[in-house]
């Protein structure tokens, strides 16, 4: 195996979204892949009441030699992977910087205040403009739509993990993903996960997004 390197050490990855979207699953899958490759991975999660429709965030720290704080210092994110567009902006406010990169799902998950007509939700155009302004590189993809087409909206997480691999920011290997998924799933479910991952990788590599 060639010597694996990191662009930064620790590399600071934030995976965000809304409670119930499967954040913990994604951060664990990505963390497990990097851990299998020999990296020290530290993941900080939000749990408890915040799960009930609130904003959730996983801080993933990847290092060659040691554990780091489960909370990333403000302004120190290298990459934000977001399952929900307005949550991307919330994370950038605290952890963003001029060099940060973002992959965001474009499908909104409306807060109760928006549903009840108390507050309004930003337009897709505004979100794209703002995220682009606050980042050095941003990828937008409708992972939820594709996931539903593959068979389950929860696969949106797998698409996002694939997209992260596609950016080449982290040494996320398709074979390692396969190994991890095959240890948990088989048959049709395994195939759907592999399809979702491949779609994520291709979406970034083909630069269609």
């Amino acid at each position: 195996m060639p010597e694996l390197t990191l662009k930064h050490d620790p590399y600071n990855l934030i995976i965000t979204g809304v409670g119930g979207q499967g954040n913990v699953m994604t951060s664990r899958a990505v963390g497990n892949m990097l851990s299998l490759l020999g990296f020290h991975v530290t993941i900080g999660e939000t749990f408890g009441a915040s799960q009930r429709g609130g904003s959730v965030m996983s801080h993933v720290r990847i290092s060659k030699d040691s554990s780091w704080s489960p909370q990333i210092p403000s302004g120190h994110a290298h990459m934000v992977v977001s399952m929900e567009p307005s949550e991307t902006i919330r994370v950038l406010k605290d952890f963003g910087n001029r060099d940060v990169k973002v992959i965001t799902n474009t499908r909104p998950f409306y807060p109760v205040g928006v549903i009840s007509g108390q507050i309004s939700y930003p337009s897709d155009d505004d979100i794209r403009t703002w995220i682009s302004e606050l980042t050095s590189k941003a990828w937008f993809l409708n992972a939820t739509e594709k996931a539903v087409a593959i068979g389950d909206p929860i696969l949106g997480n797998v698409i996002m993990a694939g997209a992260l691999a596609g950016t080449g920011e982290l040494p996320l290997d398709r074979e390692v993903f396969h190994t991890i998924m095959a240890s948990r799933f088989s048959g049709d479910i395994l195939q759907k996960n592999l399809d979702a991952y491949a779609f994520g990788v291709e979406s970034v590599l083909s630069r269609k997004i």
């Binding site: 429709g53 609130g54 949550e87 902006i89 406010k93 109760v112 205040g113 930003p122 505004d126």
Partner: peptide, 26 residues
């Protein structure tokens, strides 16, 4: 800490860009 100019702009954007998510019963 964060770059002041970036922080200021990101905070401005977040007012309209990330509406508050209130905790509620399922």
């Amino acid at each position: 800490g964060m770059d002041d100019v970036y922080k200021k702009r990101a905070t401005e954007i977040s007012f309209a860009g990330s509406p508050h998510r209130e905790a509620t019963f399922c």
